[in-house]
Design a protein around this nucleic acid. Structure first.
Lengths: 249, 249
DNA sequence: CGAATTCTTGATAGCCCTCAAGATACGTGG
DNA sequence: CCACGTATCTTGAGGGCTATCAAGAATTCG
């Protein structure tokens, strides 16, 4: 039941740098496609799969008691979805496709089996989840004390950072498949406030904003404004250093 | 350089359930004590150690650009500190003792070495960090959309849950070595608001509150009020299930 | 070209912060 | 055991930020 593309993704450096290859061949991997807006799983579903993003943008989110939504994480190609709740019976959040997406899904038990066969792979996963945790902690800092403007700047820089690490280059132009409602739902704001802040950031000359695209005109000052720490870049840099050491050894 | 107490902690079920014991003997572990209010490390310090809490309460926190503080995590005996930034060069947050505390500190490289020798230990750590991540995500939900009253109820239930799992029993009385300033700094509120909400919760008959101690008079309704999910208890239950399976196999 | 979605802009209201003053609890030294 | 200073908590008044509501504009898509 080997899926060629899935195998390729699992073998790719970003995910399974050195898993025992013979185990991969015995794994049941399914490739699934989802339309824009489609739900991959709902909060409370059984945890049966770990997913690898091939194409598209997805988000994890929670529907709150008051009817509001909280967007939690964004997933782009090569991201792993589900590492943080491997131990859970039920998924803690919903996964929704923001754009047309393709996922490779690996059964949880198979995934754990692969992981156990490759300690260095498991260590890699530990570091990834650790990074996610640190980023969540820093998001809490930004959510709790910043005003709307600073929250939004922080959010945009975090997304930019994530995309930049993926593309291995720093781009001042960011594709952003999010409506203002969705940005608002990421930050505990309303779409009205997002609109007003975006306009203000444009007037101030920091960004240029059109639907689905943001140009950063002064990312240096924006970074200072919110004291943004680029954990994705630090992690990526550090990981490359580790790989070199491992290769040398 | 073996420290008997440290060895005991590392061997205890909660941390190193089955690490290769011969490695533990070669590890340099130091036991350090900290006074109330003392800083263990500051944000930005090099990551040199992983710490195991023996006694006391500690908190990780960030000092924000505007001078405010954000308390992030609380650590109680047998907790591990530092798992989530094993891959980082610098600590992302400050660690401060809330009460007189004792820590066993293991050098990061030694800790990683132990971990690599015991995949099941590493898997355990992966699950722990995953749990932390999930809890952080849910804290974001509570921070972004809840009003002050609901934030505080959520916060108290989360602390209660953590303590209950540690003590393996559900207690309606919670020792809480936090001032109202510190609760406020955990939630992005002010001490004034915390005071007012606490009084209101008392008037409504939900809790009885005195400095450093809270009695829950109706934790069922409080849990419903904020739709609280007890991830600590779920994790603990699930882990015991896994252990049984592992033993049977 | 028309309908639906998304975004903009303004007016109003509510929650929580800020500021302030007093009350209570705690620790220390006599 | 008491007195005093400090830290913590309580309570009230006023103001700012963002939610809510609403109406219209712009964009997208069939």
């Amino acid at each position: 039941m080997l899926n060629g593309f899935g195998k390729h993704v699992l073998e790719s450096k970003s995910v399974l740098s050195d898993a025992s290859k013979e185990y991969i061949d015995s794994i049941d991997m399914r490739q699934n496609s989802f339309m824009e807006g489609e739900i991959v799983y709902n909060a409370g579903d059984s945890v049966n799969y770990v997913h690898i993003v091939q194409q598209g943008w997805l988000t994890s989110l929670n529907v709150l008691a008051n009817g509001g939504r909280q967007l939690l994480n964004f997933y782009t190609p090569n991201d792993l979805v589900g590492l943080e709740f491997l131990s859970s019976k039920e998924t803690p959040s919903t996964l929704k496709a923001l754009s047309a997406s393709t996922l490779v899904s690996v059964q949880r038990d198979d995934f754990v089996k692969i992981m156990r066969e490759s300690p260095s792979l498991m260590e890699h996963f530990l570091l990834i989840v650790g990074l996610q945790d640190v980023i969540m902690q820093e998001r809490i800092c930004s959510m709790s004390r910043m005003d709307a403007k600073h929250k939004i700047v922080y959010f945009l820089l975090l997304l930019k950072s994530k995309v930049d690490v993926k593309t291995q280059e720093e781009s001042q132009s960011l594709f952003l498949p999010l409506t203002q409602y969705e940005i608002a739902d990421s930050l505990g704001l309303t779409n009205v406030t997002v609109s007003k802040v975006m306009s203000e950031l444009e007037r101030s000359g920091y960004i240029q904003y059109k639907r689905q695209r943001i140009e950063f005109l002064n990312s240096v000052d924006l970074t200072k404004m919110v004291d943004f720490k680029d954990r994705y870049a630090q992690f990526s840099k550090r990981l490359r250093g580790r790989d070199n050491i491992a290769t040398a050894a």
